[in-house]
């Protein structure tokens, strides 16, 4: 297809130049801005400073917000695993034939509609006097609003990220050679033993990529915490949004974004090293 190396590189160029110009370069520029006192296009003359990072390390508020973001992301990931893993397992190993394809589509169709639409749906389900409160009221149980709680944030995020977990785990389970299960069954292994000894360990790569695809974006989530969490939903993400949209302290916003990025990358590298170690063992 590509007869000369030059032609091949020309084919790569549009996609990779695009990513470099509009993903990697902006990140580098943002890193630079995070060491400035003011943005270079403002009224005041900027100078080099570590103040933005200092205020992260000095103010307990920001550290608490980072902790909050990580906590929300962790609970979201756990929620997605608890619902998503068995779901992927059932889809891959119990359901057969045309039902498998149909149910698989049912899982991913909501993903094709807007996530903001789904958040709006949760608001009207959880609100004071909302559908759940009304339903419980029929049984004589009176509750206040379920909205603006920690759990409402998690529920919204799990709902948003569940398809990623189901997809990656499903693919991993589906890839396992059927011969293993037949061998285990013919040797008289209990299904539970087959699961513990064969299926689960072989599905771990899918679980890991699912965790990455859920946890990392969830650390940066600010829409669900803001709309479903109300005052409870202060995260590093919502503060970064405020700094850029409302208080226009962009250099501090850049620094906080970078703290988040570094934390996320460290976690990512940790996971990669972990998988390397595992694959070396086996």
């Amino acid at each position: 297809m590509f007869t000369t190396p030059l032609r091949r590189w020309l084919a790569f160029a549009p996609a990779y130049m695009w990513l470099i110009l509009f993903a990697f370069v902006p990140l580098v520029i943002m890193l630079g801005f995070s060491f400035l006192s003011d943005v270079p296009f403002g009224r005041r003359e900027p100078y080099l400073t570590f103040d933005n990072y200092a205020s992260f390390f000095e103010r307990a508020l920001y550290q608490r917000l980072l902790g909050n973001s990580l906590g929300i992301a962790a609970w979201t990931t756990i929620g997605c695993l608890i619902i998503g893993y068995p779901l992927a397992l059932v889809l891959a190993r119990v359901i057969k034939g045309r039902w498998q394809a149909a149910l698989f589509l049912l899982m991913i169709v909501p993903f094709w509609s807007s996530s903001l639409i789904r958040i709006y749906a949760w608001v009207s389900v959880l609100q004071r006097g909302g559908v759940i409160a009304q339903a419980l009221g029929l049984f004589g149980i009176e509750i206040e609003s379920l909205l603006y709680t920690y759990s409402s944030i998690i529920v919204g995020l799990v709902h948003a990220f569940l398809p990623y977990m189901v997809l990656t785990v499903y693919v991993a389970i589906d890839r396992i050679d059927r011969a293993y299960f037949e061998a285990a069954a013919s040797l008289g292994a209990h299904p539970w033993r087959t699961f513990v000894k064969i299926l689960f360990p072989l599905s771990l790569p899918g679980v890991l990529s699912g965790i990455i695809l859920v946890f990392i974006p969830a650390v940066g989530a600010f829409v669900e915490p803001r709309l479903l969490g109300g005052p409870q939903g202060q995260t590093l993400g919502t503060v970064i949004e405020d700094l850029f949209v409302e208080s226009f302290n962009w250099t501090l916003g850049a620094a906080l974004s970078f703290v988040m990025l570094v934390v996320v990358l460290l976690l990512l590298v940790g996971v990669v090293i972990l998988t390397r170690l595992r694959s070396r063992q086996t």
Binding site: F12, Y16, L19, F22, A23, F24, V25, P26, L27, I29, M30, F33, V39, P40, F41, I212, L213, I216, P217, V219, G220, A221, F222, G237, I240, E241, F244, W250, G253, A254, S257, M260, L261, V264, L268
Partner: peptide, 28 residues
């Protein structure tokens, strides 16, 4: 080349969005 594709997928979109916003403002 495949590795280069991973950061734009995994980095929270919030960070990419504000970085782009900064760049466009800086370049006027």
């Amino acid at each position: 080349l495949n590795l280069l594709l991973i950061p734009p997928i995994t980095i929270p979109w919030l960070i990419l969005a504000v970085a782009l916003l900064l760049m466009f403002f800086w370049l006027r």
